[in-house]
Design a binder for these strands. Structure first.
Length: 428
RNA sequence: GUGGGUGUAGCUCAGUGGUAGAGCCCCGGAUUGUGGCUCCGGUGGUCGUGGGUUCGAUCCCCAUCAUCCACCCCA
């Protein structure tokens, strides 16, 4: 019989990894609270049409990366490949966008059928922020400041770079697009296969090409930033001025284009050179047309998403994970013999009731005294509580200090809680 | 989707055309109820899977799956 294994590109988060993730998630949660952003949770499955309409029919994500299938009713469903579309759908559907502004955040798994590699998986996790109803550059800057504060908290600030661009209005971009296509058509013979394919589907992406043979043609191509409409130009200038005032360094990258169709005006990416080819760690921008495109009233919006796997990987690569994220134990109860094992379980419950902050594990499964001491040591506990036949008859508990040179003690059970309380405050 | 690398013990990896080893981990002992260090012993493998070549394949060939890296794309 063949082994059943996990789906390709979908990973188990194992116990030795979960403390880092929890550390990251704690930081994110606290951060969102400090900026007054509220969490929203949406289903992992949506109607396929939602993503086709929002992300764009001719994007790679929709064309070849979605997990789409029919349910038992014959409806076409899709595992969400990103978070924004679902948040917009949920916000519209529940009236969150009616004459009000929103600052929302979310986290959860996303699904894209790509070839897995470092920092890229078929099930991956994002933390994202979406804001609605605010059209000035101030909210663009706020989301950037929020992400920057996260990097600061995590110690990543000096390892990431903010890249910035403006896509202008849809009209200005359409005009520019025509100009660009016309330009590239002049050099059709120098375009590679990818570029030819994109020439009419997504010509802006050609600017992103790493093909050195096209470098000259691309460098001389008309620039999007030279074709912005006046309002977008002004928006972008104010945005940069605000970032300057806030002391946030950035690089204007005129070739920065998002892979999703719904963006306009501001787009940005936080990138790192420490992760190989998956250098984008957080990306987003403004998407003023999306709500309307999905059937809502015109509502401006700006948001971003970050890749949790990539950030965790970055923290580990740069050795920025605090040593104390591994949640260990304060105490470990050893028990020797049937009667003591029974007592140990009960004592454990008693102590947890009396001392909610106590992290305590009761040994289960028997074993020699020696092996239990070994387990106590490995558990990371600072204190071993010993319940053997001797202690049982005397109504006492043995105390063995595992992390300090201090003689073993025997304590009356009635004095245990008080002793543990002082032990905890001493260790902390 | 394309290209390349790698699949041998729970983990990290040696190895040979005659069906396998180390270190770590785990278990036991030296130390009748006392961990970390040391020493001794032990458990554990359909050598990814399927086919082919061969007297014989873990090793050679093909396929397949998985994994890693890069392209592409993206968070």
């Amino acid at each position: 019989m063949s082994k059943i294994q996990a789906i390709r590109g979908m990973n188990d988060l194992l116990p030795d990894q979960s403390p880092v993730w929890q550390y990251f998630e704690r930081q994110v949660r606290a951060l969102m609270g400090r900026y007054g952003y509220l969490e929203i949770r949406t289903p992992i499955l949506e109607q396929t049409a939602l993503f086709k309409r929002s992300i764009g029919e001719v994007t790679d994500i929709v064309e070849k990366e979605m997990y789409t299938f029919e349910d038992r009713n014959g409806d076409s469903l899709t595992l969400r490949p990103e978070g924004t579309a679902a948040v917009v759908r949920a916000a519209m559907e529940n009236g969150l966008l009616h004459n009000q502004t929103q600052r929302l955040w979310y986290t959860g798994p996303m699904f894209r059928h790509e070839r897995p590699q470092k920092g890229r998986y078929r099930q991956f996790h994002q933390v994202g922020v979406e804001t609605f109803g605010m059209d000035g550059p101030d909210i663009d800057v706020e989301t950037i400041l929020l992400s920057a504060r996260l990097w600061q908290q995590l110690g990543l600030m000096e390892h990431v770079t903010l890249e910035l661009n403006s896509l202008g209005s849809n009209e200005a971009r359409a005009a520019y697009r025509e100009k660009l296509v016309a330009y590239f058509e002049q050099y059709a013979d120098t375009l590679d296969e990818d570029a030819k394919r994109r020439l009419h589907s997504n010509p802006l992406r050609i600017l992103d090409s790493k093909n050195p043979d096209m470098a000259d043609v691309i460098a001389a191509a008309p620039q999007l930033l030279d074709h912005l409409d006046n309002e977008s130009r002004e928006h972008f200038d104010k945005l940069k001025a605000l970032l300057d005032a806030a002391g946030i360094d950035y690089v204007v990258n005129p070739r920065l284009v998002r892979g999703l169709d719904y963006y306009n005006r501001t787009v940005f990416e936080w990138t790192t050179t420490a992760l190989g080819s998956q250098g984008t760690v957080c990306a987003g921008g403004r998407y003023d047309g999306l709500v309307e495109q999905l059937g809502g009233k015109p509502t401006t919006a700006v948001g971003f998403a970050m890749g949790v796997e990539r950030l965790v990987l970055l923290l580990e690569t740069l050795e920025l994970v605090p040593a104390d994220v591994n949640h260990t134990l304060d105490a470990y109860i050893m028990a020797f013999g049937d009667a003591a094992e029974r007592e140990a379980l009960l004592l454990g419950e008693q102590l947890r009731s009396a001392l909610p902050q106590l992290r305590l594990q009761v040994h289960c499964g028997g074993g020699s005294f020696k092996s239990q001491v070994k387990k106590a040591d490995k558990s990371g506990a600072t204190l071993a509580l010993i319940l053997g036949e001797d202690e049982l008859t005397r109504g006492s508990v043995g105390l063995k200090y595992l992390r300090e040179t201090r003689d073993q003690e025997e304590l009356d059970r009635s004095a245990l809680i008080e002793h543990l309380t002082s032990h905890l405050s001493r260790i902390a």
